[in-house]
Amino acid sequence: MSAPPPAPVREPAWSLSRSAIGLWVTQAVLGTVVYAVIVATAIVLVPTDAGWGVPLLRWGGPAFVVLYGIVTIGVRPRLRYRVHRWEVTAEAVYTLTGWLTRTWTLVPISRIQTVDVNRGVFQQLFGLATVAVLTASSQGTVRVPHLEVDVARRVADDLARRAELVRDEAT
C-alpha cells in the first residue's frame, strides 16, 4: 500500500466556470422574489390595527428583502467565485469551498470508487455540470460544481481512468 499524498501547501489552481456567477445570481434573484412575495402577502393580509408588529412588518419586511437581495445578488456570487477552487493532480483531487466557513477536501486517486457528471436544471441553462467523486470514506461524495460541460466530462473521464489504473496496479 502506498503512502497517502502529502497535504497541499497551496490553494487549488483552478476556479469554477465564470458562468457560475450567472447561475448564482439567477438563483439569488429567484430567492429574493420569493421573499418579496411572502413579505408583500403578509403586509396585505395583516390588518393595519393588528398591533405594534404592523409598522415593523411594513418597514422591516421590505428593508429585509432589499438587504437580502443586495447581499445574495450583488455580493455572494462574486465572493463565492473568488473562493471556490479545485484541482486534479497526479495524486489527488483537491477542492476548496465555502465563503464563510472554508472546507478543504483532498481525495487521493486511490480512494475513488466512482465518478459521475451531474447537470441540474439551472446548470443546463448555463452550460454547466458538476463532477461528483464518490469515495469509500465517511465523507462520501466530493463535488466539483459548476464546470463547463466539456471540462466536466474530460475531468470525469480522466479521474475514472486513473482510478481504474490504480486499482489494477493494486491487484
Rank of each mutant, 00 (worst) to 15 (best):
T41P: 12
L56Q: 09
R143W: 01
T101L: 11
D158R: 06
Y35Q: 12
R85F: 02
T105D: 07
V44M: 09
F122N: 03
W52I: 03
R82F: 01
V107H: 00
R143C: 04
L56C: 08
A63V: 03
G120N: 00
E148D: 15
W52S: 05
L106K: 09
R58Q: 13
V131S: 12
V142M: 04
V131Y: 02
V133I: 13
V107Y: 02
W59M: 08
V88G: 08
I109V: 15
L106C: 12
A90K: 14
D49G: 14
W59H: 10
G60W: 12
V88Q: 14
R143S: 11
A63G: 12
V44E: 12
R102Q: 06
G60V: 05
L159Q: 13
I38S: 10
W52Q: 06
V155Q: 13
R78Y: 12
G53M: 11
A129N: 09
F64N: 06
L57Q: 03
Q113E: 10
I109F: 02
I43M: 15
G69I: 04
A36F: 14
V71K: 08
D157R: 15
R102W: 01
L106A: 08
R154Y: 01
V107C: 01
I70Y: 03
A42F: 15
L96A: 08
T101P: 03
G31E: 04
V44N: 12
G51M: 00
L159A: 05
F126V: 00
A136E: 03
A50E: 06
E148L: 03
L57I: 07
V66T: 04
A132Q: 14
R153Q: 09
I73D: 09
L134S: 14
H146V: 04
T103Y: 01
T97I: 00
A40D: 13
L96Y: 05
R58P: 12
T101D: 05
V37D: 07
F64R: 07
L67M: 06
I109C: 01
P55I: 04
V121S: 01
Q124N: 13
G60S: 10
V93R: 13
V66I: 10
V65T: 08
T32G: 04
A156E: 09
Q124R: 15
Y81H: 15
T135N: 10
R102L: 01
V66L: 11
Q113D: 05
A90Y: 08
G60K: 11
A92I: 07
G74P: 02
R80N: 11
V88W: 07
V34L: 13
H84G: 07
T141N: 05
T48N: 08
V66Q: 09
T135H: 07
V93W: 06
T72S: 13
T89L: 04
Y81K: 02
